[in-house]
Simulated scan of single mutants.
Amino acid sequence: MTAPTAPRTILEYGLSSGNVALVQLLGLCPLLAVSSSLVSALGLGLATVLALTATNACIAALRRVTGRDVRIPVFVTVIACVVTAIELAMRAWLPALHGVLGLFIPLIVTNCALLGRAEAFASRHDPLRAALDGFAVGVGFLLVLLLLGGLREALGRGTLFAGAGALLGLPQLEWTLLPGYRGFLLATLPVGAFFLLALLIAARQRWSAR
């Protein structure tokens, strides 16, 4: 039986030492594709946090009745059910944001972080600790999404939370940093996402080394 993991250790791993985006380099496809704006990054990040938390808790609750031979199909089924529920809820309550994120919401099912945490942690711990682990890992991913999305939007358009009124119904969040700014095209393109993510990873490695 696995010894209980301290909550502080769980949080530190998800947010820093085991960050799925900057350390494990998982989920890079949605990270790079959706981070073109802060609003879309926030939407996908929150959906991922909810998916990780819920799937970890469910898998931990089922761990004693799931045989080792069928654990992977069970994990995938639980993940697919949770992500489908999140997608349907977003389509019902935030249709504009759902339209922007499009295929990347159901593609959360294929995010290696969900299956990885299910196998490495949720299947070996109680539901409460598993939910905390999923939340910490999801928030770590969300923070990187927000940082990358904010950098790309600020450099590329000179704005922050542009479109929050239409997508979230929160126009008060929209902020123009530089009126009349013509934008830096590279930051809005996929290659700009790769460059900025590389800089974030290098900065994190430098900080870790110090």
Rank of each mutant, 00 (worst) to 15 (best):
I72H: 11
P127H: 04
F75E: 06
R117C: 01
A122I: 07
L115A: 04
V109E: 13
A130V: 00
V78H: 01
R117H: 03
H125K: 12
I108E: 13
M90A: 13
E87C: 13
A120M: 08
A130H: 14
V74S: 09
P106M: 09
A122N: 10
R117K: 11
R129G: 07
I108R: 08
I105D: 07
G116L: 06
V78I: 06
V82H: 06
A96L: 02
I79S: 00
L103P: 02
L97A: 04
A80W: 02
A92W: 10
A131N: 13
T77S: 12
G99K: 10
R117D: 02
V76N: 00
A92H: 10
G116H: 01
L97N: 04
A89G: 15
L101C: 06
G102Q: 09
A131D: 12
I108V: 15
A120D: 15
I86Q: 08
F75Q: 09
L94H: 08
W93M: 03
L115M: 05
V82S: 08
W93K: 12
P127A: 03
L107H: 13
P95E: 03
A131E: 15
C112P: 03
E87G: 14
R124N: 11
I86E: 12
E87I: 03
R124A: 14
V82N: 11
M90W: 13
A131L: 11
G99Q: 03
F104R: 06
I105N: 10
G99H: 04
I105M: 09
P73A: 08
A80M: 05
V83T: 09
P127S: 04
V100E: 11
H125Q: 03
L88I: 04
I72T: 06
A80S: 11
A89W: 14
V100N: 04
L94T: 01
L103R: 11
S123P: 10
R117I: 03
E119T: 12
L101T: 01
E119Y: 08
A120V: 10
V78C: 00
V109D: 07
M90S: 05
C112D: 01
W93F: 15
V78K: 03
E87M: 15
C112A: 13
L94M: 11
T77I: 01
E119R: 07
A89R: 09
E119D: 15
H125R: 05
L128F: 04
V76D: 02
D126G: 14
F75I: 04
G99D: 02
P73R: 01
L88G: 10
L97D: 00
L114K: 00
V83D: 06
G116C: 00
R91Q: 13
C81G: 14
F104T: 07
S123V: 08
E87A: 15
I72F: 14
A80E: 05
F104M: 12
A131S: 13
A118T: 05
L107V: 08
V100Y: 04
A130F: 05
